[in-house]
Design a protein around this nucleic acid. Sequence first.
DNA 1: CTTGGCAATAATATCTGATATTTTTATTTT
DNA 2: AAAATAAAAATATCAGATATTATTGCCAAG
Lengths: 224, 224
Amino acid sequence: MSETASTVGSTTYQRIKRDIIFGALKPGAKLKLDALKAVYKTSLSTLRETLNRLASEGFVEAPPQRGFLVKPISVIDLKEIAHLRVLLECHALELSLENGDTDWEGNLVSAHHKLNLMEQKMLGGDASKKEIWKRYDWEFHLAMIQACNSKNLLALHSTLYDKYLRYQMIVLTNRGEAAVQEHRDMFEAAIARDAEKAKSLLTQHIENGLEHTLAAMDRGELVV
Amino acid sequence: MSETASTVGSTTYQRIKRDIIFGALKPGAKLKLDALKAVYKTSLSTLRETLNRLASEGFVEAPPQRGFLVKPISVIDLKEIAHLRVLLECHALELSLENGDTDWEGNLVSAHHKLNLMEQKMLGGDASKKEIWKRYDWEFHLAMIQACNSKNLLALHSTLYDKYLRYQMIVLTNRGEAAVQEHRDMFEAAIARDAEKAKSLLTQHIENGLEHTLAAMDRGELVV
DNA sequence: CTTGGCAATAATATCTGATATTTTTATTTT
DNA sequence: AAAATAAAAATATCAGATATTATTGCCAAG
């Protein structure tokens, strides 16, 4: 979701990943190399490097000898991802609440505040900024667990967050006021260092999102 | 650890990954492209694709503009990995014990039997077969959790197992009889579907391995 | 001697273009 | 309509070229 280093490779990587997450590249779509070369204006070699990376992260599939395709979606997959996110994020949250110092807390307050501001705007119906809004959501969730003291854990979580996000972006509707309140509750439990409560709220938060997405998928409300 | 598809790319991938895990490529070592090209007899493009994949899995680092190097080791990193393995493998184990059917059980019995046979040989001092032995260890641990019903979870676990394994291969000594007994206990708890006991044994098993490796690292007993 | 700066060298990132092999698609035959 | 086959498209892999960036070694200044 973040990453700097403006080399051609890393830029292409970010762009394609973003296009997969936000649905510009549809689940299951064939990723024809020549076509991508034209779209992303980059060479075959760079493209293949990028796609290999995305394949190993699970955003792309690479069946041998037949190129690449956007990882398909499925209800099963979504459920797995949601449950793993609960597992990892709760664990990280617990560690983070134990270790978080003043800086951590300050950063969290800031992240929550920014998210909240954005959420108010979103409630006003301005859906054009979905992407920015989700960046604040990410930054809030990251801020919560940032003091967990495990780079490996944060890395795994980051990928899971993105996979979960893709499913959220696939459905048209958002959860509105409910999610806003959940963020606020989690935030307060975190500041109070109430790990059990925070974890339970987080679990609920993710599972509510899951249900919402599943329901929308059932009704076929997908972004085509 | 497994994988078929004998394309040049996937073969090189497996070989380099294996060389990192088993220490032929030392932690922190610079991966010069020309040198690798000669060793693995493959083209630059294929090599870079491979290294990109390994980088995204965390076996290789790729600082921008300066090529690739084998992921360095550290005590911190080892601890993180061990703890994550406990978290994920215990979770998977619990699910697996709930869902495992007769086929799962049969496969587990077989995997444990094979591991046990190999372990008896190893106790006899034949360290030359470390790699084969570890494959049986892997197959046993995988058999335990295979019925967890989550491809995503199994994929994450597989990578963690390999990372943990690398640290184990770095120290010279093995844990011998103790680990054999632990495997047996875990196996029996699993067959009895005693999830709590199985999880606690597994946790202990991994943490014992961690302590053993940490102690050896402290004493500097590293494979150079 | 050590440190800072600069030239020479090595290595990387990226691109273009070529070829063998494999898939996919279209066409023909039974 | 199914099977067999030919034609077209796409992929995997390789080789080689270039601009850019890192590294190394050398020399002067303190």
